[in-house]
Write a protein that binds this DNA or RNA. Structure first.
Length: 575
RNA sequence: GCCCCCGUAGCUCAGUGGACAGAGCGACGGCCUUCUAAGCCGUGGGUCGCAGGUUCGAAUCCUGCCGGGGGCGCCA
């Protein structure tokens, strides 16, 4: 028996596709209306095959048009081949079985067979009432039930070189990494957020030399840092009495000051790290030597041309990589091997490194290095972030205002605000470039998708204010209400949409895809606005109708706030 | 040359096996004595890069090709 319930099957997502371990009728909570439907479909399908079922799990979808029902399943089409019957005939029998399974007319208005063999379910108002009750029962904490296989996840992101302010690209890393950690936590994982500080090595030396040159009026080093902030740093260090000749001190102070800036910017952006991990400390604690020793003992290193190499080709890389240069200096990879070994030693079962597009070639060798250390390379993931382009109307804005001076995240926040900035960095998949249109992002109108969603939330808040304290009581007994009038199509559509939220969060977490939450929250807002158009809430006619609709408003408000919260975007009470 | 990502509406993009392919922007036309018009409704707009293959069914999976971007350092 290979089937699993959708609840368990999808909970772990991409890396562990179903079939998973649990039998398919486990994990279904009686109060989850979607899980009940799935379970019923599975049971009905199994009944047609005398309990012997293998193969793909039947779907439970929303049909493209309302005339095709509230939910549909492809189960009959999947069963047609093994049963040796026509899909349509199987669908008819399945429909009858399903009707029994769901207790006759209690939940189901009718079942139809359509198209190539879809079984379409038309659900009753009582079913929708119960669905609302189950949502209300979740209280403030909407979203998925925690995964039954939680992981300890370390998400390393931003990790920008501490040699200058964060630019918009770093902002996208920050928004993505932060939203990802929120999603993973919502899915039930234990998450740490970490910023790796590259405070050792060549670029810091060059940075120090650049500051020193500004301080002493000396020669700028080749590939030095030109930005105006370098001059400011030089001034501050001068005021502190730092000797420009003490390059080690200049570097350390410069890095410290830059990191304070970076931290302040991230703070303002709503991104907070649990840990700032210093590369310099890694060396100081001897971890680099220890990691290299471990690789050496495992027989994965060799000397050639005066350098120490790691045999990454044994683990899928396309060429071997240098760990210690001929001159005796360790490479960046050497430190990173030690760093990732440290992560594993700290007990993390999953390591997610959010990398920039320009580092994507780095992932295979890091994966190889992890394997060489004797760890499971599949524990390592590296989502690749594509670039952010700043666009203004039709014009491509200059990425650099002054040579070497990128548009900073602070400037962007000053311009469009934190909510819009986060939204526009998250609403596209991380592996597609973003054109951030300042003109659109600044606009305070429905054209601007972030305000579109926030406005729905504020509108609901306004309705609830108008309704007063009745709104509070409405949520408590939403499902028990049986108004004299039947539910409007837009009410049903909205309820269905809210029911999707847990699956959306699970999927978004499993696929490392916060942009799905943007798309979802937009559709919730759209469904709400349609409901608002069709259905008077306060003062609605009919026994219990007002309270029922107030309850729906409250549930929608919680869902939108929950979705925006996962994105780190505020849900305003008024706009 | 090898590796990775991408190619869907005029633009920017959702959509990793299901029913006539979606959203936002842009264009055009309607709707405010009524719970927020930061809203709603309607119109126009697509050979899902191309060609094969797998499948009852493909934008989605496989192969090849074309086009765009990125990466292939004893830089980080």
């Amino acid at each position: 028996m290979e089937w699993t319930s959708a609840i368990t099957a999808t909970s772990m997502g991409a890396s562990v596709p179903w079939p998973s371990l649990a039998p398919y009728d486990d994990g279904v909570t009686a109060t989850d209306p979607i899980a009940e439907l799935r379970s019923a479909v599975n049971q009905a399908a199994r009944a047609l095959r005398d309990g012997e079922l293998t193969g793909p799990e039947p779907s439970l979808d929303c049909p493209p048009k309302p005339e095709l029902g509230d939910y549909s399943s492809n189960a009959a089409m999947l069963l047609a081949a093994p049963l040796g019957e026509k899909p349509h005939d199987v669908a008819v029998r399945l429909g009858a079985e399903l009707e029994r399974e769901l207790g006759g007319g209690e939940s189901i208005d009718r079942i139809e067979v359509a198209g190539p063999g879809f079984v379409n379910l038309f659900l009753s108002d009582p079913w929708y009432r119960r669905a609302m009750a189950s949502l209300a029962g979740a209280g403030e904490r909407l979203g998925p039930t925690p995964t039954d296989s939680p992981e300890r996840v370390l998400v390393e992101f931003v990790s920008a070189n501490p040699t200058g302010p964060l630019h918009v690209g770093g902002g996208r890393h920050a928004a993505y990494g932060d939203a990802l950690t929120r999603l993973l936590e919502a899915a039930g994982h234990e998450v740490q957020r970490e910023f790796y500080v590259n405070d050792a090595g060549g670029q810091v030396e060059r940075f120090a030399a650049s500051i020193a040159a500004r301080m002493s009026g000396g020669e700028m080093p080749e590939d030095g840092y030109e930005g105006a902030y370098v001059a400011e740093l030089a001034e501050r260090l001068g005021a502190e009495g730092v000797d420009p000749a003490d390059s080690d001190l200049v570097g350390r102070r410069g890095v410290k000051l830059v990191l304070e800036e970076v931290r302040a910017t991230l703070d303002r952006f709503g991104v907070h790290f649990d840990n700032w991990f210093s590369e310099r400390d890694l060396y100081a604690r001897g971890e680099v030597d220890a990691a290299l020793g471990r690789l050496d003992r495992a027989g994965h290193t060799y000397k050639s041309e005066g350098a120490l190499w790691l045999r990454t080709t044994e683990f899928g890389d396309d060429k071997d990589r240098v760990l210690i240069r001929a001159g005796g200096k360790p490479t960046y990879l050497a430190a990173d091997v030690a760093y990732h070994w440290d992560k594993l030693e700290r007990g993390f079962g999953r390591l997610i490194d959010v990398l920039g597009a320009d580092h994507h070639g780095y992932a295979p060798r890091l994966r190889a290095a992890i394997a060489a250390l004797g760890a499971d390379p599949d524990a390592f993931e590296a989502p690749i972030m594509r670039l952010v382009h700043i666009v203004e109307g039709d014009e491509r804005a200059q990425m650099s205002k002054r040579s070497g001076d990128f548009v900073s995240l602070d400037e962007l926040i000053d311009d469009i605000g934190v909510d819009a900035a986060r939204w526009f960095m998250l609403w596209r998949s991380h592996d597609t470039p973003v054109d951030l249109d300042l003109e659109l992002a600044r606009r305070e109108s429905s054209d601007n998708p972030v305000y579109y969603v926030q406005y729905a939330h504020a509108r609901i808040a306004s309705i609830l204010r108008k309704a007063g304290e009745g709104a509070e009581r409405a949520s408590a007994d939403a499902g028990a209400l049986t108004p004299g009038t039947s539910l409007q199509p837009t009410e049903k559509a909205l309820i269905k949409r809210l029911l999707e939220f847990p699956d959306e969060v699970r999927e978004a977490a499993a696929r490392r895809a916060p942009h799905r939450v943007c798309a979802y929250s937009t559709t919730v807002a759209a469904d709400f606005h349609a409901f608002y158009r069709d259905c008077q809430v306060v003062g609605a006619e009919g026994e219990g109708v007002e309270r029922s609709r107030l309850a729906l408003c409250l549930l929608t408000k919680r869902t939108i706030a929950g979705a925006l919260g996962l994105l780190g975007i505020s849900a305003p009470e008024r706009m």
